[in-house]
Structures are given as C-alpha cells and as structure tokens.
Simulated scan of single mutants.
Amino acid sequence: MSSPSHVPVLLDRVVALLAPAVGRDGAVLVDATLGLGGHSEAVLTRFETLRVVGIDRDPEALALATDRLAPFGDRFTPVHAVYDELLDVLRDLGIGPVAGVLFDLGVSSMQLDVRERGFAYAEDAPLDMRMDGSTGITAADVLNTYDAAALTRVLREYGEERFARKIAAAVVREREREPFSTSGRLVELLYAEIPAPARRTGGHPAKRTFQALRMEVNDELAVLRRAIPAAIEAVDVGGRVVVESYHSLEDRLVKQAFVAATRLDVPEDLPFIPEGHEPALRLVTRGAEKATPEEISQNPRASSVRLRAIERVTQGGVAA
C-alpha cells in the first residue's frame, strides 16, 4: 500500500485564528475533520493546556493520527464519527461548551495519496471513494446504478462540469458493455467525451467528475449543512468556529450559516440596537480568506481554499 503525506493548508493562519479562543486554560478544541492530525499537532504543541477532541469518519486516518498525537497523552481524544455528530460526541464525552471547532473540508492527503482508496485520477485504482470504507455506497455503485438524469445532476451540481449530460450518457452506454470498477476506465471515457479545447484548460479533465462522485458518495453537503450550526451551538462565549472550504458550494453553505448566525434581530431602519438584541456571534474574517501565491507554490492543494471564522460574543441564538 502506498503511504500518505500531509501538508496542512494555511496552518499558521488557522492557528492564529484559533489562538484567542484556545489559548485559555482548560480550553477544548474539536478538530472535526482530523485527517492525519497536522492542525491538531500544531495547536497541541503551541498551547500546552489545550485538549483536542479529534473526529474523523475514516478509520485509517484516525489510527494514523492517533499514533502521531500519542505523545500528547490524554490531551488528545480520537473519535470515529462523522463531523455532523459533534454535539453527540461531546455529550458522550461529558464535555460542555468548547473553545473552538475546526473544519478542514474536502478530501484529505490520506485519501488522495493512498491509491487503493480510489480518490485520485492519476493512477488506476478501485472506484471506492468512501471516507469510511466500512459503510455506504461506492463511486462504482453511483456510476453503475444511477440513471442518466441523476448522474447529470451529480456531475453538474457537485463538479460544475459543463459536459455533465454528455458524460452521463456515455457512462450509461458503456456500463451496459461492462460495469465500471476502476478509475482508469473512467478517466479514458472522460478524455473521449470532453472536447480537446476544454481539456486544455481548467486542470485535469477528470478533476471535476472525481470531485462530484466523492461528494455524492460521502453526502458531503448534507453533512456540512448540519455540522456548521452544530459547531456554532457547541462553542462557548469567546469560542470560535474556523472553516477551510475547497468547493464553491461548501463555501456558500458556510457563508450562509455564518451570515444567519450574525444577523441582527431588529428592523433594519432602527437607529440603535436595543439591549439583548445584539447578535450572539460576530464574523472574525472579512469575507473568505485565500492562500498566498507563495503558499500555493509550496502546496498546490491550497489553491482553492476559502477560510472563514466566526466567534461567539454572547450566549444566545444559534443559526437556523
């Protein structure tokens, strides 16, 4: 089996955004998408009294991160769960409001770099793409069972693929000859169906389709839609939720949840804000922050990142 590597995106900026919240004695941070533990290692090293609860749906990543973070002893607690279950996780651990919640969304280095997982299009591998390989449908199941309309929707909505209908029709036609089982055959189909001028721009022609299949297999947008309000509910006064997104639909969901959580509960034309009607949360970042050209040159996976953060300033309402 090939070995994974791990280069956390925007690591210094993420730590800086979390610092005012997690630097307090007794603070607890939920790393809701633990991956290989790079972000958790950084904050545990910097903040000597911090405790981290690391959540990941991928048992392999969780095991590797647990080994990596073993030197921190009981300051690190690994949990096998999906990140929209974070309130249940905290309840089961007997932990009240936390100082911070971190999300580093999308596919991790763990999944991309281990060819047997089927996330990458550079090598021929089984079409799996499940973040938790013990449950749920695979990418092959999607390709072999969805009708043309459903495949078109997945490719267009999650992959923003201009040729979604053409690709879906070709998949349905080709699976009659032989079901799809490995990534190599799918990549060949994409090269055949996407016109040559379009293949020369926008990166690898398989990128959008593979992203769309992964998001469908792991139900990523529905999970995120539940997880952000849960994270906002979980943080104490002074606590922060920090989110790294890599897809426009993910970033849009995060933005909408943050805007809803910081909206004033008074008429817009009111000349002052009555006591008790202040928003319970405030935006920490102005819009979405992006990686610098220098960081992108060192870590190409940072090219699409969008970073947002929010802070609870009073007890009160949670985003709907």
Rank of each mutant, 00 (worst) to 15 (best):
L249F: 06
A168T: 14
R185Y: 05
R240P: 00
A227L: 01
A231C: 06
L190Y: 10
R225W: 00
L213N: 05
K207R: 14
A168V: 09
E174V: 02
Y246Q: 06
V171Q: 06
E178M: 10
L213K: 02
G238K: 12
T201M: 10
A196M: 14
I232E: 06
V235L: 04
F180T: 00
Y246C: 02
L189K: 02
K207A: 15
A222M: 08
E193K: 14
H247R: 02
V235H: 04
K166D: 10
E216Y: 10
R175Y: 09
R208K: 15
E193Q: 15
R199P: 14
A230H: 01
S245Q: 03
N218F: 11
R173L: 11
Y246G: 10
R200L: 12
A192R: 15
I167L: 05
S181L: 09
G203Y: 10
I232T: 06
K207Y: 11
Y191E: 13
E233A: 12
H204G: 07
R199D: 12
E233Y: 00
K166Y: 05
G239C: 07
H247A: 04
I167T: 07
V235G: 00
A192C: 11
I228K: 00
G184K: 12
V243F: 08
L249E: 14
M215L: 13
V171W: 07
P197S: 13
A222P: 08
D219F: 01
E244W: 00
A196H: 15
I167G: 01
G203P: 07
I194T: 07
E216T: 08
E193N: 08
D236V: 05
T201C: 00
F180C: 05
A169F: 02
S248R: 04
Y191L: 12
I194R: 01
R200S: 13
E220T: 01
Q211K: 08
A168G: 06
R177V: 15
V171M: 09
